[in-house]
Design a protein around this nucleic acid. Structure first.
Lengths: 108, 108
DNA sequence: TACTCATGTAATAATTTTATTACAGGTGTA
DNA sequence: TACACCTGTAATAAAATTATTACATGAGTA
């Protein structure tokens, strides 16, 4: 994974700027988990967890896969994608060129 | 500057997860500016700019100093502090221990 | 069949963040 | 004095994010 635009950098930063989402990365780094399992471990509801997972997945920091357990249940397992990014003023300066300032609504 | 806790990491990420704030870092990296000057360059109002500057300053990414110009006016110049941080799952995993999950209101 | 545990989403509420408007004070210059 | 340009903040509005509640579906097991 490499950051190739300011907009993508922002998306990554955004996806990481929440305590639960950092915690999710932390947990999944140790071991992949399925959704309900993660929700219990974090002590939050699934709807809320889905929201956080979605944001992390959109930033490409985690990914989910369906898997059928021995008991025949379909579970969605999440794991972290490996990433390593550096943040410093120079890098931000370079990427700022490809950064959209005002969130303009997208057309169809 | 080094990230020594999950809470501080979050504060830094939070302060950077906004297009204007990234842009501010980018501009100040090239040259320090005073508040009104920055506001004009960004095309935003000073009150809004103050808000963004405050968040960056709280995360210790920029700093402001008063300076009296030749014409005798007091201006507040901002500049970026140098920083360089690495973000990867392992690091997040380590810092997650010192991460506060629920934002608990502070007592007086 | 009823229960458990997995999946997911729609609708709404609460909270935080972002943005604007309206002030007020200070200094130098025409 | 009036104007231009600097500083700053209080109050409010708008928008986005976060969180909750209520549903609905499917598969295995008692």
């Amino acid at each position: 994974m490499s950051i190739n635009s300011g907009d993508y950098l922002l998306k990554v930063l955004d996806s990481l700027s929440n305590p639960y989402r950092l915690k999710i990365i932390s947990i999944l780094y140790e071991e992949r988990k399925y959704v309900s399992q993660l929700a219990r471990e974090l002590g939050i509801s699934r709807p809320l967890l889905y929201l956080h997972l979605q944001r992390l997945e959109e930033a490409n920091l985690i990914k989910g896969d369906y898997e059928v357990s021995e008991k025949g249940k379909t579970m969605k397992y999440f794991e972290v994608n490996s990433f390593n990014l550096t943040l410093n003023p120079e890098l931000i300066n370079i990427l700022a060129n490809s950064l959209t300032l005002k969130k303009q609504k997208e057309k169809d």
